[in-house]
Amino acid sequence: MKASLEIKDLSVSIGERPILKDFSLTINKGEIHALMGPNGTGKSTLAKALAGHPDYTVTGGQALMDGQDLLALSPEQRARWGLFMAFQYPLEIEGVSIANFIRAALQARLKEGEDFSAGDYYKELYAKMDALKMDRAFTARALNVGFSGGEKKRCEVLQMMMLKPAYALLDETDSGLDIDALRIVAEGVNALRGPDFGALVITHYQRLLDYIVPDFVHVMADGRIVKSGGKELALELEKHGYEGIAQA
């Protein structure tokens, strides 16, 4: 079995409009890839299509997670298999506390009859909140309701740390973060780094990549990757802009 998230010639439309066009990328476990590119090139579409958002229609190609056909699964099955997407705009869910939400997500991964101890759960939750410098009182607050942009993003990373996915798609997790929050969030992602974890970090800005140093950087334009390279590609982008790269 291949330990990778392998995207082959993936084409995705929203309604009649094609967005992704024969997109290919392989993320091996242990690797962090950065996907950059201007607005409207299909970066978020890729994340949502892989996560199984019902508005995105796959019109061609394949996505295999550790050799399994990801696209045949429901969104919840993909998640339970180990795919996590950090949302660019996390949804506000009134009346559902963070603690209950994460517990429900963890319980959904258990086999019939299995359970975990509430004591251990809170111990782990609090430890991760401390690491993300989140106030413990947040556990009782309704998920994302009235949170600042930075608090929402920290909450996404908290969920990721608790659910311990095999692959994570981080959709502009840096947007709306000040420099301190950015560092904390990056530390959260870096804490998961290791041979059992692969990630795709979608961003506009090189700044995030100072903290989450990628193994590979890809530049997208018009629904496909137009250039790939090492972390130095991000610096090049910062210098010459997307147009300079696309023309090169």
Partner: peptide
Amino acid sequence: PEQLFYLRQRGIGEQQARALLLEGFLTE
């Protein structure tokens, strides 16, 4: 549907996600 997708993306089945959203709506 965006809220429903958010919950499902965390691994919560559709039926349970709907129940959770309803409970949350009333819990407020």
